[in-house]
Amino acid sequence: MEAPGGVAVSIKRGRIAERLLGGGTEPDPRFTLANERTFLAWIRTSLAFLAGGVAVEAFTGDLFQEPVRKGLSVILLLLGMFISGGSAVRWINVERSLRHGLPLPLPLIAPILGIGGAVVAAVVVFLVLLS
């Protein structure tokens, strides 16, 4: 990469970084930081799902039967785990794309977040109306 001074410079990557990024040249650091912030936003979303899973199990004892409560809680926790894992995979894929000058990959976790969240919300509304 060309540094601001016009001199070609490079940085030494670790073994894991080299294996996961597979060559390429370092991009503008601002893009790397933007990718890191996007990853953190996804992680906070996954933490919100974890908190939702705990809350459904802990606070809805008077509203839902035990199997329903536990089922909803497990689904929310699984969604949280999926978003967390997916955000790390997406972070690596974006870093790789930036280093190879490729188009950024589509976020697969976005539709799953939208559909999963909507389905869980619809089930909860249905069960509340039924109770």
Binding site: P4, R13, P29, T32, A88, W91
Partner: peptide, 18 residues
């Protein structure tokens, strides 16, 4: 410097913890 590597350690540790 206009040059920075990715922050593997922090990102992977945080995702693993969650």
């Amino acid at each position: 410097r206009g040059l920075m590597g990715p922050n593997f350690r922090s990102v992977l540790w945080t995702a693993s913890a969650v």
